[in-house]
Structure formats: structure tokens, C-alpha cells
């Protein structure tokens, strides 16, 4: 499903984030990416989401190289990906409902379908009663769950999470990891970058450790 072939990434600042990464994820697999900060965990996820392009090598999704994807195809490709950040990047001038509805609106769904899907997503993260709330009034954990709902609402085939539990207490972190596991069981390929080793160990999934590149 996701394949890295001799991928290196060097930023314009000269920082070498990834060097010669070879990695294959099967469809429906759930993996954790760990490693010290600066080891390139975020870069790895960004390459999949096409937020960055590799300096060398190529990333293949479903057998197709991302480098062959034209600019106009990127939006469509991204709609198949759910991306969750450490900071959920919610839009603060819109209600929880509107935040979660955004990906559906972008992919051109009708209002009735949007309503149904958003409610399903809210239900999944346990925030049905917060539909009309604005993000500023939510706790960190709630914001993160809204971020997850937004990433899931489009039923993506690939879920990428960059330190999704970075700001959360252990209990909530565990909860969120189980949510990801549930989505994985429903068929999504999941990549989670985390430095929380204890939590990663408990999940008993394949774990990839990135070493910091000595440059």
C-alpha cells in the first residue's frame, strides 16, 4: 500500500531529515514510527501526504509513484488521507460541526449527507453533544478528538497521525490510540508517529524506529 524506495529528504536549510529509507506497509496495516525528535518521523508522514517531496527516491501509494501525480491531482489524492497533527489545527471561527464538515464540503458532498456523516464521526469520538461548540471552549483532549473526527469523516484509506497524543494525559492517549486501532480494523492503513514508547509498546503493533541521520 505504502512503499518508500531509497527515500532521502534534505531540506533547503541543509538539514538531512531522512537518508535512504526503504519501507513497505501492507494495505490495512497499522505501524508506529518512533525515534528521537529530529529523526524524521514528521517528514516521513509529510512525504506520504505530499506536504513535502523527496529529494531522492520515490514514495509509492498503491503501486503508483507520487512523483507522477500532477498538481491538479494532489487535492483529490489528499482527500483519501486523514492527517492528524499534534496540534489539531482547528479553524477557530467555526463550530465543531463546521470543522468536521470541512473535508466533506471540499469533496463536494450535499448538505444532507454531510449532516449524517458528521454526526457519525462525532459519535465515534464521543462528542455528539459538542456539535455547536466553538474550538476555543474545548479542552486539549476534545480538540484532538475533533481533529481526529475531521480526519476520519471522509473515510480515508490512509490515516497519518503525527504525535497525536503529544499534549494529552496517558488515559486519554490510550483512548485515542484505541480509536485509531478501530479505524485500522475497518480497513484503513494507519501510520502513527510517536515518541511515547510505553504507549507504543502496549499497542503491540509493528514499530519502525528511525535513527537520527549523522550529517
Amino acid at each position: 500500500m505504502i512503499e518508500f524506495k531509497q527515500v532521502s529528504k534534505k531540506y533547503p536549510t541543509g538539514q538531512l531529515a531522512l537518508y535512504n529509507v526503504n519501507l513497505t506497509l501492507e494495505a490495512g496495516e497499522m505501524v508506529f514510527i518512533t525515534g528521537h525528535s529530529g529523526a524524521g518521523k514528521s517528514t516521513l508522514l509529510k512525504l506520504v501526504a505530499m506536504l513535502e517531496r523527496p529529494s531522492k527516491g520515490e514514495v509509492l501509494i498503491g503501486g503508483r509513484s507520487l512523483s507522477k501525480l500532477g498538481k491538479s491531482q494532489i487535492p483529490n489524492y489528499r482527500r483519501r488521507i486523514g492527517f492528524i497533527f499534534q496540534d489539531p489545527h482547528l479553524l477557530y471561527d467555526r463550530s465543531v460541526f463546521d470543522n468536521i464538515a470541512l473535508p466533506l464540503l471540499i469533496s463536494g458532498m450535499g448538505q444532507a449527507d454531510i449532516r449524517r456523516r458528521v454526526h457519525a464521526a462525532l459519535d465515534k469520538v464521543g462528542m455528539v453533544d459538542k456539535e455547536k461548540t466553538f474550538p476555543l471552549m474545548l479542552s486539549a483532549g476534545e480538540k484532538q478528538r475533533v481533529g481526529i473526527a475531521r480526519a476520519m469523516v471522509n473515510k480515508p484509506t490512509i490515516i497519518l497521525a503525527d504525535e497525536p497524543t503529544g499534549n494529552l494525559d496517558p488515559e486519554l492517549s490510550q483512548d485515542i490510540m484505541f480509536t485509531f486501532a478501530q479505524f485500522n480494523e475497518l480497513g484503513a492503513t494507519v501510520m502513527i508517529a510517536s515518541h511515547d514508547h510505553a504507549l507504543v509498546d502496549r499497542m503491540k503493533k509493528r514499530t519502525i524506529v528511525l535513527q537520527k541521520v549523522e550529517s
Binding site: A49, L51, S72, P75, N76, Y77, R78, R79, I81, F83, H89, L91, L102, P103, I106, S107, R150, A151, N154
Partner: peptide, 16 residues
């Protein structure tokens, strides 16, 4: 800008 970045990430086209 942040908002645009987020919408771009979830697949917004330029026309959107």
C-alpha cells in the same frame, strides 16, 4: 494562511 494550509491538507482545490 493557517486556514488555507489546513484546507489544502484535507484536499481543497485552488478554486475551493
Amino acid at each position: 494562511k493557517d486556514e488555507i494550509r489546513v484546507t489544502r491538507l484535507i484536499g481543497a482545490t485552488n478554486s475551493y
